[in-house]
Design a protein around this nucleic acid. Structure first.
Lengths: 193, 193
DNA sequence: TGGATTTCTTATCTTTTGTTAACGTCCGGG
DNA sequence: CCCGGACGTTAACAAAAGATAAGAAATCCA
């Protein structure tokens, strides 16, 4: 299996074994809904292969919040942690090989996570890292134009642009597919693509 | 003194006393720079009275990232935690009464924070809460127009609009002061303000 | 009080983005 | 092999936002 969490949390071998055995392998086609907006999330997923998208309904429009790829874990974090109706839908973009763990099992395994100061520190570091990530994402919206953000995405996360349909990327950038098409055309004219 | 942290972390009385005594009272006028972009942050501030703004230089333009008010703590989190040059400037908007603690003292007091599982859990909860906050802030940029975001700010954080100069709010919303002025005019015409 | 600074508004023009609709391409299933 | 859905591009027009400049209003403080 993979070691996404292992790398971060440095679980002791025994716990790691226990942790692993709760995971369930799942193979699904593209455009499979893993969690519907409004449902209460019971599963956290690890991606072995494929791409998953988190999006929400915006006045009938499908708006992407985030993309996830190999060796990343994905869930509706708020719903999974707080057991409240999910504000977002989780859906595969490509055919995927996933591994999921049930909330109850994860709670079981992590029930005593705070009893080890090293684990607590690692968890806190992981959460802080995520906080910084979202802070930077916010700043990119305040600071840069859609065109700039597209160029940045192209530079920093080319795999997203290569593997995700363009209209999903448009909503991820906060613009319409038509506008993104125009931006791309202009960038091509200017030789920036 | 106040109890911003206390409410969140539920420190034992003894630790709380120790914690408090490291704080230094500081009174400053409006437009005082508490931390300059590029400096390494050594101080975390608690606001007793006043308003503080975190902003960054964007091609010579002054762009606001966040506002902080009474009973909130403010610092350049990344710089303070990692001891790297700050990507942002921290500056007072109004005359302020502040209380600051030195990084070294805070580390001292919190050195054994992870030894208590209850504290660890509380800290993790606080970090998760912040993660959600920034996630929601990102979503508001993808989901809503500047006009919508202004109306939302008016509804959810009227104190910001009452106490902060409008051109700071404009950059906080990711638009120009001129554009915000137009949006306000339109909202007034439509009786929404 | 009065002058300087900061802040806000307005006007004009340009650029960007949204909206809607049409059209072409690609791809998978019947 | 054709059909239909999904995807991308383009066009035309409307709406919104940026840039710049000028001037009014508010605020500060000496």
């Amino acid at each position: 299996m993979f070691n996404s969490y292992r790398a971060v949390l440095n679980l002791p071998e025994s716990k790691w074994e226990e942790f692993q055995c709760y995971y369930n392998r799942l193979e699904v086609p593209a455009r499979t809904i893993l969690l519907q907006e409004g449902e209460i999330s019971k599963r956290a997923y690890l991606i072995e292969k494929g791409c998953v998208r988190v999006w929400f309904n915006n006045d009938g429009m499908d708006t992407t919040f985030q993309f996830f790829f190999e060796n990343e874990s994905v869930s509706s974090v708020e719903s999974f942690r707080r057991q409240i109706p999910s504000p977002v839908t989780v859906e595969t973009v490509e055919p995927c090989v996933l591994h999921w763990i049930h909330k109850d099992d994860l709670d079981q395994v992590f029930g005593d996570i705070y009893s080890d100061p090293a684990n607590s520190a690692a968890l806190s570091e992981m959460l802080f890292e995520r906080q910084l990530h979202y802070m930077k994402h916010c700043i990119s919206f305040i600071k840069h134009s859609p065109a700039d953000r597209y160029v940045q995405l192209l530079r920093e996360s080319p795999h997203i642009i290569q593997r995700v349909p363009q209209h999903y990327i448009a909503s991820y950038l906060g613009i319409t597919p038509v506008s993104l098409s125009r931006i791309r055309k202009k960038l091509m004219r200017e030789g920036k693509i």
